[in-house]
Amino acid sequence: MLAIALGLASALTLAFANLAVKLGGDILVGRAILSGSAALLLAPAALFVPLPDAATFAALGWAWPAHLIYQACLIRAMQRGDLSLVFPVMRGAAPLLTAIGGALLLGETLSAAGWAGIALASIAVIAFAWPAGGAWRAHPDAVALGWAAATAIGVALYNVADANGVRAAPSPFTYIVWLFLIDWIGVTLAALALRRGRLAAALRMQWRSGLAAGALSIASFGAALYAFSLIEAAKVAALRETAVVWAALFGARFLGETGGRRRLVAAVVLVAGLALLQVAG
């Protein structure tokens, strides 16, 4: 029950964190502020958790590039498409990929009903990607969807890497804290290189939304990482991806995005598939 509660809480805060970044305007700067502020907020905790050992550093060595790939693809997807479109695709496809990765790399197994739940969720993801006119040729959101699919691969990679990390570390909190302490480096260097003279102005405009997103990121991802130490990675991913319903609602309510009803129905179907995965095991 604790793992389920953590997964659902992670879903809501995940959607809020991405809404805050999207509202900020410059997605790259917003992600840099999110990662940097999360690291600063958690830095004092490094004094109170067990020190990382060789296994922890080895796990972080696998996780950091996975998170970097995820962030790079996420930024491009959110720059190109609506939050209510790209977020469900990138998050909804991730449980299937995580389940496959967990089976191949972590020795985890799912029942036939569990795989059926993932299949239902995958159908819902296709519904999100389906063009309004039904014509796939010259799809208006093809580039955004491509980046969203790449982000889903990044999510699956870091889910598997992080599940291994929290289990290998002296304490799950050791891995959680140290992951946040290194996660900011890549995206911050990218912002410094690509924004240069515009970075200071962007920081002044977006520091509030970025700071809020950083705090939400700690709550969201910290809860998910601890849940990885309690139950299978695929189940945590499934619970966390219920955030797609919130993203569909937030996109329509706060960002004025179109396609709200169809995307909301698809989001509910997606959550139904993920719930089946959770119940079936």
Rank of each mutant, 00 (worst) to 15 (best):
F221L: 08
D26N: 12
V143T: 10
H139F: 13
I182A: 13
A152Q: 02
V245R: 01
A212I: 12
A58M: 09
V269T: 11
V160D: 00
A247N: 04
D141E: 11
L19C: 03
Q206E: 06
G281Q: 11
G7E: 01
L12E: 03
W136G: 06
I33P: 05
A66Q: 02
G81V: 07
A11T: 04
G214Q: 00
G7A: 04
L157M: 06
R91C: 11
V49H: 09
A119C: 04
A58L: 10
L239P: 07
A32L: 05
E241T: 10
P65E: 00
A135M: 15
R91E: 07
V244N: 13
Y226L: 08
F87M: 08
A163V: 03
L199E: 12
G259D: 06
A59K: 06
F254G: 10
A275H: 04
F173K: 15
F228Y: 00
A224D: 04
A280I: 08
W178T: 15
G114H: 07
H67V: 09
G214S: 00
V245L: 04
A59L: 05
S35N: 10
L8E: 03
L47A: 15
P52L: 01
A135R: 15
I185Q: 07
G114W: 06
F87S: 11
H67Y: 13
L230I: 12
V49I: 14
P131K: 00
V265I: 09
A266W: 06
V143I: 14
R91V: 13
H139M: 09
G210C: 01
A72P: 04
T98Y: 11
W147H: 03
L34P: 15
R261K: 11
A219D: 05
A66H: 03
A267T: 13
H139E: 06
L68S: 15
I75K: 06
L276D: 02
